[in-house]
Design a protein around this nucleic acid. Structure first.
Lengths: 229, 229
DNA sequence: ACCTGAACACCGTTCAAGT
DNA sequence: ACCTGAACACCGTTCAAGT
């Protein structure tokens, strides 16, 4: 068996030039947008390790080095892929103006959901965090809190505390999702021993899988704490 | 110049056997503990990318494959390195029993500090989170909150919310520390435009560098919110 | 029981060319 | 302007040996 890689790809198109050109078929030209879109596909399908420049090029039907015309390097691809996944369409358009708490909760739940739809994004954040999509989310939050009456002196701390909470919750959720067995094993060990860790063994801390409920409840605590009195 | 790698290491010891054997000099035998300790050194010095099995072996004066006798693979090394860095010695021993809030705050600040002393650990957490050091921290927190009067039904949510907060804050802090210029550039752009992001531009959100203060203040909000009424 | 080098199947990226 | 293959300097790990 010959050793050529990717030998399955046929050398020449089997459509003859008699047919009118059809947009959909055979590779469209390489472009930054196509590269990013395909990178997201690859990341969704195979995770962070699954994205290599070689595979990316392969899937685009191009040589590896062709990518480098459109993109600086692999880091660049990751930055672009992350940004592509984090836009916020805003709260549901309704006629009655919303409670500030409802608005904040909606925004943060959407934030979390966007990231969990692409779990690899949690490993990239917050390192590449200051793209415009993130900034506009922060701006929105700031405005809402300010309107709600949070003192200027408390504003930044309030924003960062919400940010910290969402980041921690989301990153945790994504990583524990990958290893549910680990969690179960750990909890089992806890309950058996019940010597060193009686309290969290009893409360079944590691088995509680109502992630969404826990997220909302904890967020409630935080919002209670930072509500203007 | 000959191409041999690591040619600087002399082939034979220059101490003769006339001298009594001294513990310190010339490589001690390979061991799991030595491997982990050296891995932590390497990680502290060069970050996550700086740790390769080849470099690790090199620094230990051994062949690469010798490591694999003591350790399963690179993942294993990372797990062990993380665990080695996360133990908690407990609150300062004092005679007056502490307020539960003081105790929680101390524990979480220590947690954060331990991780920030080894910034690479923030990229590894919380994926490898359920080692015994982490579990004992959770246990301690659980006990303290329970003693403080947090209702059983709220206990798990309270613990996870504190966990989320610490994780988010620490990971954020570590990653923004690396790229202070980025933050400054972003803030500058914000203030210049002042169109799209007027609120966070004005509040200097991205320039506020009192990280410790913000951490404590936000933690205060959260603790206010989950304090039993 | 402990350590080793050669070899395998990969990486990202530089470079000098092709059209 | 856009795309390419060959080559470089790396990776982690398998395997078959050595002591």
């Amino acid at each position: 068996m010959p050793a050529k890689r990717g030998g399955a790809r046929s050398k020449r198109s089997d459509r003859t030039s008699l047919q009118p050109v059809q947009e959909q078929a055979s590779e469209p030209p390489l472009s930054r947008d196509r590269i990013v879109a395909t990178a997201v596909e690859l990341l969704d399908a195979h995770g962070l390790d699954g994205l290599t420049m070689r595979r990316l090029a392969d899937r685009l039907g191009a040589g590896v080095m062709s990518l480098y015309w459109h993109v600086d390097n692999k880091e660049d691809v990751l930055d672009l892929a992350l940004d592509a996944v984090l836009d916020y369409r805003g709260p549901p358009q309704s006629d009655d103006p919303q409670d500030w708490r409802t608005e904040i909760v909606h925004m943060l739940e959407d934030w979390r959901a966007s990231m969990l739809r692409h779990p690899w994004s949690t490993s990239l954040l917050p390192r590449r965090a200051l793209g415009q999509n993130i900034l506009s989310r922060l701006e929105r939050m700031s405005k809402t809190l300010s309107r709600a009456g949070v003192a200027d002196a408390d504003l930044n701390a309030a924003i960062w505390s919400l940010w910290n909470y969402v980041m921690g919750a989301t990153i945790t959720r994504a990583s524990f999702d990958v290893s549910d067995e680990d969690r179960a094993v750990a909890q089992q060990r806890l309950e058996q021993l019940s010597g060193p860790y009686p309290t969290i063994g009893r409360s079944r801390l590691l088995l509680d899988d109502d992630w969404d409920g826990a997220f909302r409840k904890g967020l409630g605590f935080l919002l209670d704490g930072l509500s203007p009195k």
